Deep mutational scan, measured.
Amino acid sequence: SAVVMEEGSPGEVPVLVEPPGLEDVEAALGMDRRTDAYSRSSSVSSQEEKSLHAEELVGRGIPIERVVSSEGGRPSVDLSFQPSQPLSKSSSSPELQTLQDILGDPGDKADVGRLSPEVKARSQSGTLDGESAAWSASGEDSRGQPEGPLPSSSPRSPSGLRPRGYTISDSAPSRRGKRVERDALKSRATASNAEKVPGINPSFVFLQLYHSPFFGDESNKPILLPNESQSFERSVQLLDQIPSYDTHKIAVLYVGEGQSNSELAILSNEHGSYRYTEFLTGLGRLIELKDCQPDKVYLGGLDVCGEDGQFTYCWHDDIMQAVFHIATLMPTKDVDKHRCDKKRHLGNDFVSIVYNDSGEDFKLGTIKGQFNFVHVIVTPLDYECNLVSLQCRKDMEGLVDTSVAKIVSDRNLPFVARQMALHANMASQVHHSRSNPTDIYPSKWIARLRHIKRLRQRICEEAAYSNPSLPLVHPPSHSKAPAQTPAEPTPGYEVGQRKRLISSVEDFTEFV
């Protein structure tokens, strides 16, 4: 048969007729292969192709491409040299491709048809291009793949890379869960390890502090508590009631339409708007009261037996805890006409967050109470924005700035309102402590230090009264110190430094 060459192609190359033996071998191979691939376009007849790359030819070592076609129900084999250009295909004639002069020997084609199974398996396991790669995943090629499931790999992101949580363990979102698992493993320790309690022994800490320079003076030496005195035992138990972190309780009120001037209507609300609910979820963490331990979680007086509701929101960081007394989460009882059960919590909070959804101005004093010092007013606006402002009593104007209003988005509203309420509550605590000038409020841990110092002074006084020969370590507060001759004046800087060093040991009130 003659071949018409394309323009620009090399000279004529004689194409030899395939021997009958080659056709029989390739026909047997075509019957084993699956003929249901995917359909081509209507211009080209339905056909199945599979590209198999052999590394070497037997005796020649030339890479070839073998295409199996099922045109007219008769499979045909096409061998081509890759750099050459194939002729145009037609549905009426068999596929013809040019070969190099080196394939002119018909014996070479017979060798190609009689490829060993080793070469076929190696060509099938190679990388296939384009559409033949999808075909190689079918059941027909499963014989050339190794048996057994593939090893499982770690989760992959859409980009093909490992997620960040699997790369950096410290930033993994499941870090707290692993800590819980470690605690569970520790709890399952053997009885021999049960006595080993991690941490620092208080006796060891005391020993280090006792021999430090801070205890060089007799006034700073630790003293032993009497065991037989019940009054001192009660004082030590009272110390446990003062937490070592700051605590805040903040009221949250929802004002519906037409309720801006009605205290009873505001306290009777059992739910609010959708934006109000989203605002609550951002204030803190939802907790169930019956599962809380009052000595570990500050509840601000809420009952854990269901008297004040089942849930509330709280927030904490390293040095403070805040609980929100939310009116809509507290039960509304029919027998309580004046809502006294709610007001006994909300009316005693220094700061209230008022979500004013009424469309009218909310005035300070609508919720009557002796300790309502500051109101954080949240007014929802259009386009997911809110107006946040402050209202306070006249005696609080020096501590709280009420002249600045803020426009905040719904997303950042819980954070801004919480921070403003916490700052206002700190100012309210300082303002409330002014009624007792001898006990200015600095912080909870300073209050613990003052309680310890008062307890020490009482013990020293009782020891001096029981044994008059012992001198008083600290003179009583009601006694007057003996007159001392004025010492020589020293520079102001040295006096300030000495006073600062003494105050650092005794108390921190002056620095606050």
Rank of each mutant, 00 (worst) to 15 (best):
Q484P: 12
K337F: 10
A322K: 02
H474K: 14
E494Y: 08
R339A: 14
H345W: 13
F232L: 14
P294V: 15
L224H: 10
G301S: 12
M426N: 01
S469G: 14
K333V: 12
D382K: 02
H338C: 14
L472F: 12
Q370W: 11
L346K: 04
R450A: 12
G369V: 03
G300Y: 07
L455V: 07
I353A: 00
I440W: 07
L455G: 10
E233A: 11
S477G: 13
E494I: 06
A417F: 00
T247P: 04
Y493V: 14
V323H: 14
P243D: 15
P380L: 00
P475S: 14
I242F: 08
P243I: 05
Q321M: 13
Y274Q: 07
S479E: 14
V304P: 15
T490D: 12
L225N: 10
V252E: 00
F232K: 05
G284H: 05
G492A: 12
C305F: 11
E462I: 05
I502F: 13
Q237E: 12
Q259V: 02
K290M: 05
F324E: 02
A481G: 12
P243E: 14
L449V: 06
S479P: 12
L289T: 14
S504N: 10
V473S: 08
E270K: 06
I353P: 00
A463M: 14
P222Y: 06
I326G: 04
E384K: 06
V335E: 14
Q484K: 10
C385K: 03
G301F: 03
E510F: 06
W445R: 07
L283D: 00
L225P: 10
Y441N: 08
L224G: 11
N386Y: 01
A327R: 03
K337E: 15
K444P: 06
F311I: 06
A421W: 01
K499E: 15
N356T: 00
R275G: 01
L387Q: 06
C305A: 12
T277K: 15
D308G: 10
E384S: 08
E510C: 14
F508H: 14
G347Y: 15
Y355I: 01
Y254L: 00
V388P: 00
I446H: 07
Q230A: 12
D349S: 09
M396D: 02
E288W: 13
H431E: 12
I367F: 09
E461H: 09
I440N: 09
D401Q: 06
A417Q: 01
G365T: 11
S268Y: 03
D240Q: 05
E462P: 08
H325S: 04
A481E: 13
K221L: 15
D361Y: 06
G359Q: 06
P475Y: 11
F415L: 07
G284I: 06
N356C: 01
V388N: 00
T485D: 11
S231A: 13
L225C: 15
L239R: 07
D308Y: 08
D401V: 03
G365R: 05
N348K: 15
P471D: 12
V335Y: 13
L283G: 01
G282R: 04
T332G: 07
T247Y: 12
R285G: 12
F279L: 02
D349Y: 08
L364H: 14
V430A: 06
P414S: 12
N261S: 11
V323C: 07
Y441G: 14
A251H: 03
H248R: 02
P482L: 09
H338T: 14
D246N: 09
S262L: 04
F324P: 02
L387E: 06
V388K: 00
R434G: 09
M420W: 05
H338I: 07
V374G: 02
V374I: 07
A487Y: 09
Q497A: 15
H375V: 11
V323S: 05
R498W: 06
L267E: 03
V388D: 00
N220C: 15
L238I: 07
F279A: 01
S352W: 14
L224A: 13
P414H: 01
T485G: 11
D395L: 03
K337W: 10
S409M: 03
D246S: 07
V255N: 01
P476C: 13
K368S: 14
V430F: 10
G284V: 05
A327G: 06
V255P: 00
D357F: 00
Y245W: 11
S504E: 14
V376I: 13
E488C: 09
Q230G: 09
D395I: 05
P468D: 13
L267T: 04
N348E: 14
H345N: 08
G284R: 06
G492K: 08
K480I: 11
V304W: 08
S479H: 11
A427Y: 10
I326M: 03
F279N: 00
E233T: 09
Q457I: 05
C292Y: 14
L364W: 15
Y441T: 14
R458H: 14
E288I: 06
K480Y: 13
V351R: 01
T402I: 07
L472A: 15
R454V: 13
